[in-house]
Amino acid sequence: MKRRRLILKILSYLFLTITSFVMIYPVLFMALGAFTTNDRFLEATILPIPNTLNLRLFQRALSAGVWDSYVFTLERCLFYIFVTIVVGLIGGYIFSKLRFPGKNKVFLLFLSGMVMPSILMLVPMFLQMAWFPLAGGNDILGQGGRGFIGDWPVLFVYGWVSPFAIFLFKQSFDMLPTEYEDAAKMDGAGIFTIIFRVYGPLLKPPIVALTIVIFLGVWNDYLWPSLTIAGRPEYYPIAYRIQSVILSDYSPVGTTDYPAVMVRTFLATWPPAAVFFLLQRYFVQGLVASGLKG
């Protein structure tokens, strides 16, 4: 019996080591390839072995618009993190602590938003933006111009109210006793003080979890920008920018400057990986807390 356990354990380790390697293999290949010369890259058997830190490649990539996209994408991430969390906290508080008729129905309305795949909403959202009244040469009925299409607001208008955030915060508020706010109310605290000052500090885990989820979502956003902001490079988010930047050095038949390509991919992918590594404890907690009680 004991021997069987031991064999099982060894097999588990073996399985996990091999499969984990396979899982990260494509990304690891790219990350290592970013620090090689082209000749060394082409010698790779299983993985390329780094032999250089070619700062020129990083510099060239950053000056080709990647830096601008960094700044712009980061601004967009911060905007969405702030708005989604503030709205989520208020919504979570309302649905958890307040009592009013029809509360459950309104909550269900929000939840129904979670099953609607946003990918199907792209076309109608595009039109909503194109028809936005008084924007981009449109008249008051939203006709005549191009609306917000090709302009920066298109990347900031949607998604302020996240059903996921509201749901996550409602669950978290449910677990906190109401005595906290009763004491604060006696001292004359208003509703916003109660939400952000009294409960806010107690809700650090879901707030951090949500920060990661939003950061990853916005940083990786490609589809919506690719449809609405094409032709305005100053507003290209990183995931969209990197495409044209990468393909400029890639040729499917001839010789590709692989390290240059890998450096660019690396520049687009290290921030989500870093954020995930640093904050993953919270991430797993928050994600699981939200899903399992649902």
């Binding site: 990260i24 990786n220 990197i242 991919t265």
Partner: peptide, 20 residues
Amino acid sequence: TMWYLPSVFSGAVIALLLRI
């Protein structure tokens, strides 16, 4: 962590890498 890592990347960027 290694099993979860692929999920944190942009599908579009990784698809581009795959294409190469």
